[in-house]
Computed example of a mutant assay.
Amino acid sequence: MGMEYRHLGQTGLKVSVLSYGAWVTFGNQLDVKDAKGLLSCCRDAGVNFFDNAEVYANGKAEEIMGHAIRELGWKRSDLVISTKLFWGGQGPNDKGLSRKHIVEGLKASLKRLDMDYVDLIYAHRPDTSTPIEETVRAMNWVIDHGYAFYWGTSEWTAQQITEAWDVAHRLDLIGPAMEQPEYNLLAREKVESEYLPLYKRYGLGLTTWSPLASGVFSGKYGRNNIPPNSRFALDNYKNLAQRSLIDEVLNKVDGLKPIAKELGVPLAQLAIAWCASNPRVSSVITGATKEAQVLENMKSLELLPKLTPAILDKIEAVVQSKPKIVDQYR
């Protein structure tokens, strides 16, 4: 089965339903040679959307991605490249969503990527110390100057996205076309409940991250098996290290394994396909450090037609994570 392409929300842009993100890998674990192999593997599978951010490996991830793409000699118009701005450095004006940082930060990202423009530019987090109007105007400025084609948000609240759209409507400017929230079998509140009114009202598209919940649904963690160098064990995931929480999560993982087995797929493929089965999701951002992982991730596409309502109900019965929907949004 070939790659499926979906419109990014209500825009005319089409993105592969499975995409590749450089978050944990480029610059931290991989060099240009590795990156070329991974990116080629993704392209062969039909991936056209590659996600990055100024903060990933302190800018190194953008440099490696740009370098690899240049060496591969790919046609720029075949690719959808994104980057995200918020944490750009140590100086007082190197972070946040001020006009200064958005313009300077994006120019610096483009230099590292060695590209004239990115397709998508995201506000990597909300910045409560900058007026939303300043951010909306700055995002429009970079679009007007051809540095980016679309702008969006990441991990903003529905309220903040609505404020941005109110400003955009009032000033006759472009509002945020897409949001990049975490979305997986354990994190569903934003996508399935909080953002509900925004899909219709603003045509919000979603590029979601962490389909495996930081590797929980890779199936590699067991009761007595939390590999010391895995992300589950790393310091910034210490908040997961409360025993009861871990037990609850591992029980869900164990409950999903028979469903994956019945479908004849690894658990990770089930978790990724489940994210992509939500029609609101324009693209599920996957990660991989090895080409074999890319191939495994991409096989999730073949599972999509098999995720019948009955199977989805079975999954829900195990994870029991569906958020309560507020009546007025039905």
Rank of each mutant, 00 (worst) to 15 (best):
R170K: 14
T25P: 00
V55E: 01
N278F: 08
K100S: 08
K314Q: 15
L301R: 13
S244C: 00
G203K: 05
G73F: 12
Y20V: 03
E316H: 04
C41P: 00
Y221G: 01
S19D: 07
Y20L: 13
E182A: 13
Q29W: 09
E262Q: 14
L18K: 02
T128R: 14
K257S: 03
V80F: 11
I311A: 01
P266Y: 04
A22M: 10
Y122P: 00
A310Y: 01
N184L: 03
W209P: 07
E71M: 09
R112K: 14
K322D: 04
G96N: 09
P323D: 03
R170W: 04
C42M: 07
K111M: 03
W151E: 05
L250D: 06
N48Q: 08
L106P: 12
M139C: 13
D116E: 15
E62G: 13
S300P: 13
I226W: 10
Y237K: 06
N239T: 06
P323T: 08
E134N: 09
E133T: 15
I81C: 04
I259V: 15
N93H: 13
K322Y: 09
G203P: 08
C275M: 06
W209R: 06
V17C: 11
R125T: 13
L120D: 09
L30A: 15
D51E: 13
A61P: 11
T157Y: 06
I259Q: 02
Y20A: 04
S129F: 10
M65A: 04
R243P: 00
A288V: 09
T153K: 05
K306T: 11
V15G: 01
L312Q: 06
V80D: 09
N184A: 06
S82R: 04
D327M: 11
Y5P: 01
N58H: 12
S16Q: 05
Y122G: 00
P323W: 02
V47G: 05
P181A: 05
L79G: 05
S230A: 11
H101G: 05
P131H: 08
N224A: 11
L198Q: 06
K299Q: 15
V118F: 10
V253I: 12
V17N: 08
Y183C: 10
I64C: 12
G222E: 07
V326P: 04
F232S: 02
E54L: 02
E4F: 03
K314S: 08
N251A: 14
V249W: 00
V191L: 08
R125Q: 13
T208M: 10
D114S: 14
G287N: 07
T25G: 14
D327I: 03
